[in-house]
Every structure is written in C-alpha cells, then in structure tokens.
Write a protein that binds this DNA or RNA. Structure first.
Length: 814
DNA sequence: TATCTCAACCTTTTT
DNA sequence: GGTTGAGATA
C-alpha cells in the first residue's frame, strides 16, 4: 500500500540535502537530458520503446526539486499502474535522497482522484465513505436494472450495456444527451439504463471507475475555487503513457494544467493498446495544437533491445498506416535471430516453451526472473502453467483473478462497505443471502421494489420492514435478523479498530463458518484468504503513514490490481497478457499463440482499426525483449472445450524473414498469399479427435456486411462456432476427482485440525512437507511469525500455494 | 425457498 | 473447459 499525505509539510528539509541539479541529470543522453531539463511550459516527449521515457520523466521530477523550481508537494505525476507509481517513487527517492517522494502525488488517475474525491466529497453530495464499484459490481447493478426494465440479458448482455454506458461516460456524454444520440437497439436500451444506473450509484453513495474521473471534472467545473486550489497545489503536472488516456482523463489533465501550463506528457502512439476502454490516441496527436508553445522532444534511441529485435519491431509497426513517423535505432549488438516455434497443440507449445526456458537457465545462465511468457488472453495461461508445474519451474502469473477479486473476499468486503456506507444497496444486495440465510430472490425483489417506490435506500427500507407490503412472515423474520446483524457492524464502524471489526464480520456473518462445513481444498484456500484479508486490514490500519480507516482501506483496495503485488524479488518466470507487459522488460520473451483468430483475435481481424491495435500489441510484446525473442504458435488449440485447428498468424508473415529462424535452424518461409480466398475446408468427424477442426468461417467470410452498423463486443448471433459443427464427440470421462472422503473427518477431528494444533514450528525454506489435501511439496518461502506465519509451498500436484501455518497443518517429511 | 442437474453460451485486453 | 440460467424436486 502506498503512503500518502493529504497535508504534507514538505517545507521541512529532506533528510539529506538535495543534490546539485546537474548531478540529477547525469547519466542521461542528450535528448533525455533535454526532456528532463525543459521545465518551463508544456513539454511533449514522444518516445519509442526502451528509450528510457519514464526515466526521463523521473529525472525531470528530481530536477524540479533539486533546482528549487518546485516543492515536492507541487509535483503531480500520473502513471499507468500502481506498480509504475511505486517504482517512480523509489527512483525519485534514490535520485534526490531521503524519502522525498512521500510528499509528492504519484499514482494512477483513478487512485489520485479517488483521494481527491474523498477530500472533496461533500461538495458533490457524497460522503467520504463512498463505495467504489469495480466492473463486477457495476455489472451486477446493471443486471439488476435490466430486470426491472424488462431487457433480455440474453439479447443484450449486462456487460455490453455497461460497456456502452461506460464509453458514453468516458466521452462525457450525459444520460439525456446519450438518449438523443443513441442509434440502434442496443444503444437505445443502454440509453434507458444509463440514467437509472447513475441514479442507483448516487443513491448508494457509490462511484464506478468512470465516476472517479467524471466527478472531479464536475467538481472543477462547478467550483472554480476548488480548481484554483488544486492548480495552485500541483504546479507541475506529469502524465506517463499519455497515448492511453481517454477523453475524461484528457479533460481532467487540461483543467489542471491550463492555469500554469506546466504539463509534461510522455507517450508513444505506436504503443497505444487501450482503445477498447476509451483511450483516445488523438490526445497525444493533438498535444501540439492544444499547447502550441510546447517543447517537443523525441527519444528514438532504444537502450533495451538487440538490433535484430528493434528491426523486427520496426518492421511490425510499419504495416500500420496511422502512425507518427519515428526512427527507432539502437547502439546495442546485432544480437541473435528471432526464433519461430511451431507446435502441434497448445500443450506442445507450452512444452516447447518450458524446455527452452530450462535451456536458457542451464546453458545461458539466465535466471527465471529474466524470462517472460506473453499471451493474448488470460485463458492461455492454463496450459503454460501445467507445463511449468510439471517440471517444477517456478512462475508467477500477473493479472487474472487477483486476490481482491475472489468471491469470498468480495463478499467480506461487501459487508465491510455496508458497515461504513449503509446506503450501498449494491453491496447489501450482494450479501443479503450470503451465506445462505433463507432470504430468497423473491423477497429481496419485494424489498428493493418497495424501497424504490418509497425513495429510500434498501437499508432504510429494512428499518421499516413491517411496512413493506407482501412480505411473508418468514421473510420478515429472516430479514430482521439480517438487519440486526448488520446494524451491529454499522454501529461499531466509526469507533472500533478496523481489524477487530473485520474479524467480527468474518466470524459473525458465518462467512468463515460456512467454509468449515465441508473439508475441501477449495474451502481451505478460501479460509486462508479470509484470514489474510483480516491481517491485511490490520496492518493497513496500523500503518501510521496512511489514513488508517476501514473506508480508506476499502477504497484503496478496489483500485488495486494484482499486477501490483509484492514479490518481484523472487526468481520466477513471469506469465502475463501482452497488455499487462506494457512498460516491462525481460532478457528473454516468448510471445505465444500467434494464430489467426487468437492473435489477432477473430473479432479484430475484420476491422482495420482493431487490427492495427492488435498489431501495436504485437509491437509492444516484441519490444519487451532485450536479447532473446521467441514467437510461437500451435497448429491446433483447445478452445470452447474442443480442439480446433489453427492457422498461424498473419503477423508472422508480415515479418522480415531474414531476421527469423525456425527450430531446425532453417530460415523462416513466409506465406504471403495465405489470405487469398480459398475454398472452405470440410472436416469429417472421423478425423482423429484432436485434429477435428471447427468449421469457422474463413477469415473474411464472416466480415460485417457493408453498411451494417458496427457490432460491439459480440459477433453476429447464430454464426458462432456451434452453428456449423458436426455431431459432438462422445463426452470424455474425466478421472474421478480426488477428494478427501467426507467420513475421514468427524467433528472433533475437524476442529482439531483447524484450531487446536500448535503451529508447526521449525519449518524453513527448502524443507519438504506434506499437506492433508495438497499432498507433498516443498517450501519456497516463509513469512510472518506467530499466528500470522505463512509458508509458500510448491506442490507438484496442485502448484504453488501460500498457506497460513496456523491453519494448514503442514507436516515435515523426508 | 434451496438445491440439484442439465444445457446453452461463452472469452478479449483492464484502471 | 467453465460458468450461468432455467427447470424440476424436496
């Protein structure tokens, strides 16, 4: 968790005296130096991959402070991720000395303005304890609304509806304007939901991710004196990864910077990969129009990659039409040719990658942490994980389901949100019957409908439960019990230490108890997660550097992704999506799944703009590599539960073959004519099962009809893979799942395992241990002590687990 | 009202 | 392969 002070006293001298200005700039090349030292007026830094753009930005911040141009608190730096923010802080501290960065505002747009909103909530009619809804929460809300508006969730998914609303919000289009602009069935439905959705959020004292940007804009526009305060405070504004800002972020930046015009943005239009969530590349392209007096610096030298990688990447991006001309070059060695690996299936692909990884470590002396495996979709991580696990190669997955996204955690968090913000009807709905307490959907609907009619929040309606018509006596009874339970939490929230309250909630609601009912692997992990949540809350609120309330914790946590998690230090291979790899670098990189329909994704291949974004994504992926780059594809892949044949990606054939080698050492042969029209192939069902091909339309065949409106999110219904498929193969019997037999534990046994066992002492890294459910494994790391002691154990059978010793009952063996 | 079973449908990418 | 929704049953 990052430290943040609302009212820092940074006039106090930093621990060590600031270094001389030119000292801060040493170690930069002339262009970077120019960018860092241009501190008067707007600056645009156009920078290629690996050019040290974030570095230039960081040095600029240090330079501002060292020259006395800015006090630390006057610095605002917006990064793309929390992790980037943390790294920037560390570097600033190293450059300037001491812990100067704590006085600066460094963070993502969302985190920064969530804190602003916390301070200014009243001016907007919210309380500082407002809830933050993530995409999941928002989707639930939309789904709820769709029910009352009788919109069929099959025809229009909540996800798609929310997407439309969200993109309207990002463009600052309000509900009434959107209703005027809406074209087509989907948008008209969304136009109905939009005002209701906003209404629901406001009544719940809640904001979604978009609101975190929109409400500050409202604030600044309607309260000029507040805007002046923030302009005064943040005299120097910096935005990293500017190519990925959306319209709301653009407006926000402009509002803040227009007074003093000390705005420095850094970006690379070629690395814009977030258009799908509203990023607007024209923000960076029109910077010079908005700020004609801006200094523009180009960073074109690449320090990261070998010549062949830079040349390959340059070749990729030249296939795009809309691109600022840039001259990428590097002084680095020629390096090695890029290797293309062809595999039979995704399993084979994973195995080939895994072998290469071990080879790189054994023969080339790379460490695991120097290696990254990148893929287009999260689903692809599975086969890779299996292969690595089989050979005991340690790995870390970035992204995917993060800790705070897990169901049990979200349930617990919902109770806590409700405790600090009782009007949060979304959270109330989520947990009213969790764990199951006999309050069914029907009763809930009645309650919510009544609340709606009475203009009350669901919580207020619960206070007047006797007046709610049509409720059965049983429902009234269970709801009253629920109300009294939650009332206890609400009452305790303002005064009780947050850790205590969290523990109370986990215990008294029965969330924990529920997980004791059945002794499964799943439940054990869930219990440990709840324990970990409670201790996380404890340590957050005990930290003197942060605002130590439960509601502050809840707000911080809803903006956390696990890309941000600790443990960058340990030696593991990194697995992540191409999107998540932005800004990182590795000695060796595998870009996997280079197949038509996957990368580029099938939906994107039809639309030239989407295709260019996919290509930029490929560009981003390849430029993560310093020395070794591998491009892999499989000729068949398991998707939607069936093995489908695959064609290698067009991106491979766009590459300069002279830079590529195949596994046998032969040059790579491109097939430029691959996209010429071909007769549709028919596969009969007698073909070996794993080569059964889906009869997907060939690329191009399924393209949008000319003149038809663009479809958002989903393709044309009815033309999916299922429509043309032959008879389904006989279902394959899965081996009986290995579960502990229920009768292996009697009541006493269960309790003993969970509570009474002394924490096994004298466990240490490297020891082999046995776990009742996971089997045998090896301890990779230990942390914490006493009741909080945890061990990270690698189980060959199930993978890596972090276990609380108090609960896990580990036995040393061997 | 809760819980079980079966079938449809599904997948981008994320602050 | 996994999830989610509908329908049947206790």
């Amino acid at each position: 968790m990052q430290t943040y002070r609302l009212a820092p006293d940074d006039r106090a001298k930093p621990a060590s005296s600031p270094p001389a200005a030119d000292e801060v700039l040493s170690g930069l090349n002339p262009e970077q130096r120019e960018a860092a030292a241009a501190t008067d007026g707007p600056v645009l830094i156009i920078a290629g991959p690996g050019s040290g753009k974030t570095r230039a930005l960081t040095h600029r911040i240090a330079y501002l402070v060292a020259t006395g141009k800015a006090r630390p608190s006057q610095v605002l730096a917006i990064t793309f991720t929390n992790k980037a923010a943390r790294e920037m802080r560390e570097r600033v501290d190293r450059l300037v000395g001491g812990d100067i960065s704590r006085y600066m505002t460094i963070g993502t747009f969302h985190a920064t303005f969530a804190r602003v909103l916390r301070r200014e909530a009243e001016a907007l009619g919210y309380t500082p304890d407002f809830s933050i809804y993530d995409t999941d929460d928002s989707q639930r809300a939309v789904r709820q609304l769709m029910e009352s508006y009788h919109i069929d969730p099959k025809q229009f998914t909540p996800r798609a509806m929310l997407g439309l609303i969200s993109s309207a919000k990002n463009r600052l289009v309000g509900p009434s304007e959107y209703a005027r602009l809406a074209v087509g069935a989907a948008q008209e439905k969304a136009a109905k939901l939009y005002p209701a959705y906003q209404d629901l959020l406001r009544k719940s004292n809640a904001m979604d991710f978009d609101d975190l940007l929109l409400r500050p804009i409202d604030l600044f526009r309607n309260h000029p004196e507040v805007l002046d305060r923030y302009r005064e405070r943040w005299r120097f504004v910096h935005v990293d990864e500017y190519q990925d800002t959306n319209h709301a972020q653009y407006v926000l930046t402009k509002l803040l910077a227009d007074g003093h015009r000390n705005l420095c943005v850094v970006g690379d239009d070629a690395q814009s990969i977030y258009a799908f969530r509203g990023a607007d590349i024209s923000n960076i392209l029109s910077f010079q129009r908005d700020y004609p007096e801006a200094t523009t610096v180009r960073l074109e030298q690449n320090y990261r990659s070998s010549k062949s990688i830079v040349r390959l990447a340059d070749g990729i991006i030249r296939n795009n039409t809309k691109q600022l001309e840039k001259n990428l070059w590097t002084d680095n060695d020629e390096g090695e040719p890029i290797l293309v690996l062809e595999a039979l299936s995704e399993k084979d692909e994973a195995q080939k990658v895994e072998r290469r990884i071990r080879d790189l470590c054994v023969r080339r002396g790379l460490r695991y942490r120097d290696i990254a495996v990148l893929y287009r979709t999260n689903a692809q991580s599975r086969s890779m994980e299996e292969a690595l696990r089989r050979e005991d190669v340690p790995y870390r997955i970035v992204g995917g389901v993060s800790f705070y996204q897990r169901r049990e955690i979200k349930d617990a968090l919902a109770y806590m949100r409700l405790a600090v913000n009782p009007h949060d009807s979304g959270s109330l709905r989520r947990i009213m019957n969790v764990p199951v307490r006999g309050i069914g959907d029907k009763s809930q609907d009645l309650l919510f409908a009544w609340a709606e009619r009475a203009g009350l929040s669901a919580w207020e309606a619960l206070q007047r439960i006797d007046e709610v018509s049509d409720l059965g006596s049983r429902a009234v009874r269970t709801m009253t019990a629920f109300r009294d339970l939650v009332a206890g939490f609400i009452e305790a929230a303002p005064t009780a230490p947050a850790g205590d309250l969290a523990r109370r909630i986990v215990n008294e609601t029965g969330l924990m108890h529920e997980l004791l009912r059945e002794q499964t692997l799943e439940n054990l992990v869930r219990r440990e997660n709840l324990e970990e949540l409670v201790s996380a809350i404890q340590s957050f609120t005990e930290d003197p550097d942060t605002e130590s309330t439960l509601s502050a914790f809840l707000q911080e946590v809803s903006l956390l992704t696990d890309a941000d998690e600790r443990g960058t230090g340990d030696d593991k291979v990194t697995l992540m999506t191409l999107h998540a790899s932005k800004g990182l670098e590795f000695a060796a990189v595998f870009v996997t799944g280079l197949e038509e329909g996957l990368f580029p994704l099938s939906g994107a291949a039809q639309n030239p703009e989407d295709l260019e974004e996919e290509r930029r994504l490929f560009y981003v992926g390849t430029t993560r590599a310093e020395r070794l780059l591998y491009l892999t594809y499989a000729r068949s892949r398991y998707r939607y539960g069936e093995q489908e044949s695959a064609v290698r990606s067009r991106f491979l054939d766009e590459l300069d073959p002279s830079l590529l080698r195949t596994e046998t050492g032969d040059p790579f042969a491109s097939r430029p004519d691959r996209f010429a029209p071909r007769p549709a192939v028919k596969y009969d069902t007698l073909a070996p099962d794993y080569f059964r091909a889906s009869l997907r339309p060939e690329p191009g065949v399924g393209a949008r009809k000319p003149g038809a409106p663009p479809t958002f999110g989903r393709g044309t219904p009815g033309l999916g893979a299922g429509a043309l498929r032959g008879p389904a193969p006989a279902p394959r019997r899965l081996p009986e799942e290995e579960r502990p037999r229920r009768d292996a534990y009697d009541e006493d046994e269960t309790r003993r395992i969970v509570y009474d066992e002394e924490p096994p002492s004298a466990l240490a890294t490297g020891m082999r241990v046995e776990h009742s459910l996971f089997g045998e494994g090896k301890i990779i790391a230990m942390e914490g002590s006493g009741a909080q002691a945890k061990a990270t154990v690698f189980f060959p059978e199930v993978g890596q687990k972090k276990l609380m010793l108090r609960l896990a009952n580990l036995r040393r063996i061997g």
